[in-house]
Simulated scan of single mutants.
Amino acid sequence: MADIGDYHEQLRRDAHFLCSDKRMDTELVDRLVLQLNRVYPQILSDKEAHRFRDLKVPTKVRLAELLEHLRGKGEEACQEFYRGLHILAENVYARLPSRATRREAADPNGTNAVEVHPQRYVLNDRGSMFFMSCFGFVVGVAMLYYYGESETLRRTGPFLHSSAARLRKGAKDVFISYIEVG
């Protein structure tokens, strides 16, 4: 885990991240205060816990005061805060700046399995039904082109003219000229 005296410094470095992280909401801060109060009353007394759970004070302010209070209590209080954070909010604990520094220090070659979240590019926001209808239309035109005889193509002329009504101007011109020539 960590060296003796390390949690105090680690909490000092992580304090800004913890106070600015949106996942550190009122419920999580209250659960952390309750855990520290119930499990370790020597670290956080009932009176102190009541002060840090006061909903009249904004959560970020209460959290900043709690972190300062724990740093003032010493190494054991800081260690128990990290233990509680690890138990109650694994996703926040794993993303702490001090944890990232340790992972990098433990693996200087960079062979750690880093979780990559590629950006999702949306090329078309119209949905899958739009894609399927376009695909079906193209398949129908291809079938007419490859398997249609000239006689079949003449009979489908009015239908194909009305099908071209919703196409853009350039596509409509190409489609209608193909119908008339075919």
Rank of each mutant, 00 (worst) to 15 (best):
Q79A: 15
I4A: 14
F159E: 04
I176D: 01
G140Q: 09
E180Q: 12
R12T: 09
G5S: 08
H69K: 03
D107K: 03
E151A: 13
Q119R: 09
D173Y: 05
H16I: 13
K47Q: 09
R62S: 06
G136P: 01
I87Y: 09
R120S: 07
Q42G: 07
D173F: 04
A164E: 05
R103H: 02
K60W: 04
F135E: 04
N91R: 07
D173T: 10
N91V: 05
V61S: 03
R12C: 02
H117R: 12
Q35Y: 07
H69Y: 14
D46A: 13
Q35V: 12
L36E: 02
V139Q: 11
K169E: 11
A113F: 03
N124P: 06
V139N: 06
S162M: 09
L67K: 03
L28Q: 00
F17I: 05
R12V: 10
V57W: 00
I4E: 10
A105L: 14
G110F: 00
V116F: 08
T59F: 00
K60G: 09
S162T: 14
D173I: 09
A77E: 04
Y93S: 15
G74D: 06
F159V: 11
G110W: 00
A165C: 03
Q79N: 06
G84I: 03
F159G: 13
K60Q: 08
Y146I: 12
Y40W: 10
P108I: 01
Y147S: 12
V57H: 02
F137M: 07
G157R: 15
R102G: 09
R62H: 03
E68D: 14
H16R: 15
D54T: 07
R166M: 08
V138A: 11
D125A: 13
V139T: 12
F159R: 12
M143S: 09
I43P: 01
R31S: 10
M143P: 02
H86I: 02
S133N: 05
L160T: 06
F137Q: 03
T152R: 08
M1I: 13
R62Q: 02
D3M: 15
L88Q: 11
L44G: 02
G182S: 10
E180C: 04
D21H: 15
D14H: 00
E115N: 05
G140T: 10
P58Y: 01
A2P: 05
Y145G: 07
